[in-house]
Amino acid sequence: MMSDLSATDRDVSRETSERLSALEGLLRKWNPAVNLVSKESLKDARTRHIVDSQQLYTLAPRDFHRWVDLGSGGGFPGLVVAILAAEQNPEAEVILVESDQRKAAFLQQAARALGVKATVHAERIETLSPMKADVLSARALAALPALCRFAERHLEPGGVAIFPKGANHQAEIAEAQQSHDFSVSVLPSVTDKDAAILVLKKIKAR
């Protein structure tokens, strides 16, 4: 894992690397009170959460205008996206959706502390007004059929959805294809040999 981390860190500026480290510090500070991520995963937070989120950014169009992260939780990938966009795509809009009020409060305070642009919506995904995202992400939120329904509502027709998934990703794809048509690229995860990143386009209910 360390080789992946080192390679990822070389791709960003010192300021961005410092912000990512600051995010890890905020996560460790807040987690005992708010339970942002599992205690076990906190032991290797840099790889499990930060590098795992960074890889999603590399799969998105470089010139995206609005990235919407559903169920942002502890800020993964949403806050990581906001940090990377501050350097690489500063005009972009990053929106984090998190219905848990305490987690949403963390996201707002963390964005301010990190000095990055991120709008937080403390609302349920199902009732949120359509977000018109050209990039949509969700990490450890729901099964793929539900994510496709969310994408129908919040993703622009020409947009791309990026969903990291675990070892059962092929079964989730097959299940989602029962209710939706879409094109999908299955890419290997740099942080988990059994996991994959699903990049979906042209999502439409059957």
Rank of each mutant, 00 (worst) to 15 (best):
Q178R: 15
D52K: 04
L79R: 06
D192Y: 15
N89E: 02
R48L: 00
D194C: 06
Q88W: 04
E152Y: 15
I197V: 15
K103W: 13
Q55K: 10
G74S: 09
E24D: 06
E98H: 01
L107A: 10
N35K: 07
C148F: 11
K117V: 02
P145S: 09
F150G: 15
K165F: 02
D44S: 14
L200H: 05
A111T: 05
H169F: 12
R28H: 10
L56A: 13
R124H: 06
I197E: 01
S6Y: 11
R112S: 03
L84T: 02
V186R: 03
R139T: 01
A142Q: 15
H65V: 00
A142Y: 03
E98C: 09
K117A: 14
E126L: 01
A7Q: 13
Y57H: 06
I125E: 00
A110C: 14
H180N: 05
I50Y: 12
E93F: 01
D44F: 12
R124P: 03
K117F: 03
S189A: 05
Q177H: 13
L70P: 08
E93D: 07
I50V: 12
A161G: 05
E123N: 07
L200R: 02
D134W: 00
A196I: 13
N31F: 15
Q88A: 13
P164M: 14
V81D: 06
V81S: 02
E126P: 04
L128D: 02
T16C: 06
A60T: 09
V12A: 08
R28G: 08
G73I: 04
L27W: 06
D181G: 12
V97W: 00
A82E: 00
F163Y: 11
